[in-house]
């Protein structure tokens, strides 16, 4: 493998779920992730932005093989892990870790901090003696700036921000190469969000982490990520280096999403693009471009075929047949 090869490479990934069924119900297929391809270089942070129902979380979970993809391939460190079973994945797991959104649901309420943070060692390195394990747990807590006085406490004794630190310590204790963070700050108070974001930036630099950072918040993604992919109804509609994206938004959905994000500066007033209607049902997405039903630039041709992801500028790809709708930066 050459040095320039990406750490993670996803090609044509599909993740479908069957819903309903049972005795009387009709069975339907939700196409949560549809034909997604991207690569993440070593040390890079890729942001994944979208609203609920965009499939961003499903995608993040599929990449670390929490699910079995319906189609496509996932390569990690050059190796195809798409179809690996539980046993074959076991030695790979420590190198790719996951941070959950909800710090209340992601920690076992019946375990102490020592057990939670030490769990990866208990699972992966059962031969490790207790002193060595305790040392690594203490080290991991130090990385996330938690006091060792907390070791024998239970999750409910902590605030949301502290719990999120515990979850990050658990993810980092095995020194992973790749980290998927699924909305790690959206359940936290504003003043705590910045603490956790700064922590993630610090550990990224310290450990040379490669990350997939999932969020609905464009500002957070912009702050943390090298590149950003925007998702709508299971597909990536635009992907570009962060700065290039914020300088020139090329997909009408990215533009609407961007303009809808409220900015805490009353002196900056942006023209607002209000989308009409709701997200179409993922059970019956519109034909052709899935966004056309809410798009103010839609043409009749948009209904005929799914537009391909085409490169509009170097490294800047967009899934739209129109190239005359680019929107400059705000303000």
């Amino acid at each position: 493998m050459t040095a320039g090869a990406p750490l993670v490479e996803v090609t044509g990934l599909r993740q479908w779920f069957r819903v309903g069924g049972g005795f009387f119900g009709r069975q339907d297929t939700v196409r949560a992730v549809e034909d997604v391809s991207f690569a993440i270089a070593r040390g890079e942070v890729l942001g994944l932005v979208g609203e609920s129902g965009s499939g961003k979380s499903t995608l993040g979970r599929a990449v670390v093989r929490m699910s079995v993809p319906t189609a496509g391939t996932i390569r990690f460190e050059g190796r195809d892990i798409t179809r690996l079973g539980r046993r074959a994945l076991r030695p790979i797991r420590p190198r790719m870790q996951f941070i959950f959104q909800d710090p209340f649901a992601s920690l076992n309420p019946r375990m102490t901090v020592r057990q939670i943070v030490g769990a990866p060692l208990a699972i992966q390195r059962p031969e490790l003696d207790p002193a060595a394990r305790a040392g690594r747990v203490a080290e991991a807590l130090q990385t996330v700036e938690l006091s060792p006085a907390h070791l024998d406490r239970y999750p409910h004794e902590f605030s949301g921000g502290q719990r999120q630190r515990i979850g990050i310590a658990r993810a980092l204790i095995m020194e992973p190469r790749f980290l998927v963070a699924d909305e790690p700050v959206s359940a936290l108070d504003v003043s705590i969000q910045a603490q956790i974001l700064n922590l993630l930036i610090a550990v990224r630099q310290k450990l040379g982490l490669t990350m997939l950072f999932i969020s609905h918040d464009l500002a957070v993604v912009g702050h943390l990520c090298d590149r950003v992919a925007v998702m709508y109804l299971g597909r990536i509609v635009e992907i570009a280096p962060t700065r290039a994206l914020f300088r020139c938004l090329r997909h009408p959905y990215s533009q609407a999403l961007f303009s809808a994000a409220p900015v805490a500066d009353p002196t900056l007033r942006r023209p607002r693009i209000l989308l009409t209607g709701d997200l179409p049902s993922p059970l019956a997405p519109p034909s052709g471009c899935a966004f056309r039903s809410r798009c103010r630039h839609a043409l009749p041709a948009c209904a005929t075929a799914v537009p391909p992801l085409r490169e509009a500028a170097p490294g800047h790809a967009v899934r739209c047949i129109r190239d005359d709708v680019a929107l400059g930066p705000p303000g």
Binding site: I192, A194, L197, N198, I201, A219, G222, F246, V263
Partner: peptide, 17 residues
């Protein structure tokens, strides 16, 4: 502590938490 979307200063300074 809220990040700003400004393509020029993007991610250059840590947030003041």
């Amino acid at each position: 502590s809220v990040p700003r979307i400004d393509p020029e200063t993007l991610g250059s300074a840590p947030l003041t938490a």
